[in-house]
Computed example of a mutant assay.
Amino acid sequence: MTGDGSLGHDGLAQAVRSRLGLGRLLPLGGAADGAWIAEEAAAAVLRRAADGLPGTALGRLRIAPVETAAVGGAVVPPPPSALLPGPLRVEAEVEGVLGGESLPAAVEQLRAALFGAAAEALGLGVTEVDVRVTGLLDARPNPSAAVGPDRGAAAVRGPEAQAAAAVPGVAHLTGALGAAVHRTDGHVRVELAVSAGRRALDVTGAVRAAVGAVAGAGRTVAVLVTAVELP
């Protein structure tokens, strides 16, 4: 920081790069859940679900709002530039792998895996999965790494941070948007990584309850997941 407490040029550039690397901030659950997840983190989980499926090799993956669907307001202030709660669409590009099961069957298996991971591992409200075949391969390539940049653990300072860090399923607090716990007069936003094998929406719900218990009457709580550990 500079002497006046603001970010210097290098610090600002690093913050911008970190923020852009998160991708979209997607709503977890519905309007009442007060939780969001970075597209980068969600995509890594979906890619892991697709790895090893016969007949297809996953390429480009995008998670976006359903364009024709109506969205409502959130019960808590969302993180900066976050999408409002509403149905989501997964767009996947794949290459077919020769020598396996039929390509239509392989595509349907992939679509089911993406739907399942979105709901069961994350809690994303995905209502559409569009799979587009872009080519054919003689053999399946090695599985993708499916791991985003390690944003590191943020310091645990203050009662809200301590309450959040103690919730089962929280791997550690993060700080891609600044401090791990951002406070205003009426609101608290907590940023964290979810442990492997834990459903993100369940963890964020427990964190909101734990932080709300110590944040003080009248304060709302939102949670942003910036990473999900993979098994």
Rank of each mutant, 00 (worst) to 15 (best):
G3F: 12
G3E: 14
G5V: 06
S6M: 10
G8A: 09
L12K: 08
A15P: 08
A15V: 05
R19S: 08
G21Y: 02
G21V: 04
L22E: 07
G23I: 05
R24E: 03
R24G: 01
R24K: 12
L26N: 01
P27D: 06
G30D: 09
A32F: 08
D33C: 03
A35Y: 03
A38V: 05
E40Y: 02
A41E: 02
A41C: 09
A41G: 07
A41V: 04
A43E: 05
A44I: 00
V45K: 00
R47F: 04
D51E: 15
D51A: 14
G52N: 08
P54T: 07
P54Y: 12
G55Y: 01
T56K: 03
T56H: 07
T56Q: 11
G59V: 08
I63R: 00
A64P: 00
A64R: 14
P65R: 13
P65A: 13
V66M: 09
A70F: 11
G72H: 10
G73S: 14
P79D: 10
P80A: 15
P85A: 07
P85Y: 06
P85V: 04
V90E: 01
E91T: 15
E95Y: 09
V97I: 13
V97S: 05
G100R: 11
G100P: 04
S102E: 15
S102T: 15
A105F: 04
Q109R: 15
R111T: 13
E120V: 12
A121M: 10
A121P: 00
A121I: 00
L122C: 03
L122A: 02
L124F: 10
V126T: 08
D130Y: 00
V131A: 06
V133G: 02
G135K: 12
G135L: 11
L137D: 07
D138E: 13
R140T: 07
P141D: 06
N142R: 15
P143K: 10
A146P: 04
G148C: 08
P149Y: 03
P149T: 13
R151A: 03
G152I: 08
A154T: 04
R157K: 12
G158E: 08
P159N: 12
A161E: 02
Q162T: 12
A164P: 05
A164H: 06
A166Y: 07
V167F: 11
V170L: 11
A171Q: 13
G175Q: 10
G178D: 09
A179W: 03
T184V: 12
D185Q: 14
G186D: 14
V188Q: 01
R189G: 06
L192A: 05
V194N: 02
G197A: 12
G197D: 10
A200W: 03
L201D: 01
D202M: 11
V203D: 01
A206E: 15
V207L: 13
A209G: 06
G212S: 11
G212H: 07
A217D: 14
G218M: 08
G218C: 10
R219C: 13
T220P: 00
T220V: 05
T220K: 01
V221E: 01
A222K: 01
A222N: 04
A222M: 08
L224Q: 04
V225D: 01
A227Q: 15
L230D: 12
P231L: 11
P231T: 12
P231Y: 09
P231Q: 08
